[in-house]
Design a protein around this nucleic acid. Structure first.
Ligand SMILES: [Zn+2]
Length: 237
DNA sequence: CGTCTTTGACCCGCGC
DNA sequence: GCGCGGGTCAAAGACG
């Protein structure tokens, strides 16, 4: 009976290990896919910028001596000069009042309900340094209520005070990417992608929804890729 | 009593 | 011009 139990538990362990391995591979594939998407997005963006610059040729020399025929609202298009990055945090599914201690001191200055997301969005300003222009918005993820999406904008002009970073934060961090900045060179943030799809489930019932979530995000990513491809081909001369 | 959050008012850009 | 939606202000209140 002990032997039988051992066999069955051994089988179970093997099964679970296989499952974990499968999920790991899936994770790896998704990371790869995300990298491809990211690079595609970057090249597409640079193409778009190039095309916009070509469209209004020699904008720099023209800003003063702009003739009246160019007085349309053409020069409206501008690139976001400030870096904005999105970071996903994991938190308790119950509320932590949407505040995350991430090494900076934030003061909340607003909270609004948005149209497309039932959970409210909170607005914070960094006030560690008197002239720090950094702001961040925090909102719960639409699909997974236990994730917080923090959108940082601007750059700190001081050092982060890392003394009060909670250790649960470092392993709760899921992904840090999606920096958008106007720099013609390759941005150094690209290769650092750690996509982790919350396989923290302990029950077997957890398997199904997470699998569905994986498939769902896969479908989303594929849709995204096809739309990107379409845009790219339509942009190509 | 000082500090930080809450929360409705307010503002501003945009589409109709 | 008007309404709507997102972002910010500031009075009021909670909290130590
Ligand atoms: Zn700061």
């Amino acid at each position: 009976m002990d032997a039988q139990q051992n066999i069955s538990t051994g089988e179970k362990v093997q099964e679970l290990e296989a499952e974990v391995e499968r999920l790991r591979k899936e994770n790896e594939n998704l990371s790869l896919l995300f990298g491809v998407i990211h690079s595609n997005y970057n090249s597409l963006k640079s193409q778009l910028q190039l095309r916009q610059i070509q469209e209004r040729g020699g904008l720099f020399a023209c800003t003063e001596s702009c003739s009246s025929q160019e007085s349309n609202k053409r020069a409206k298009i501008e690139f976001p000069k400030e870096k904005t990055s999105q970071v996903l945090f994991r938190t308790d599914s119950t509320d932590t009042s949407l505040v995350v201690k991430d090494g900076y001191q934030w003061r909340k200055y607003g909270q609004k309900i948005t149209k497309d997301n039932p959970s409210p969005r909170a607005y914070f300003r960094c006030f560690m340094s008197p002239r720090c222009p950094v702001k961040k918005k925090v909102q719960r993820c639409l699909l997974d209520r236990s994730l917080l999406v923090a959108t940082y904008e601007g750059e700190h002009n001081h050092e982060p005070d890392a003394r009060h970073v909670s250790p649960s934060l470092t392993n709760g961090l899921v992904m840090a990417s999606t920096t958008s900045s106007y720099s013609p060179t390759v941005n150094p943030f690209a290769p650092n992608i750690t996509l982790d799809l919350t396989l923290s489930g302990t029950n077997q019932e957890m398997k199904e929804p997470s699998q569905r979530f994986v498939e769902d995000s896969k479908n989303r990513i594929e849709d995204y890729v096809t739309s990107l491809r379409r845009i790219q081909t339509s942009l190509r001369p």
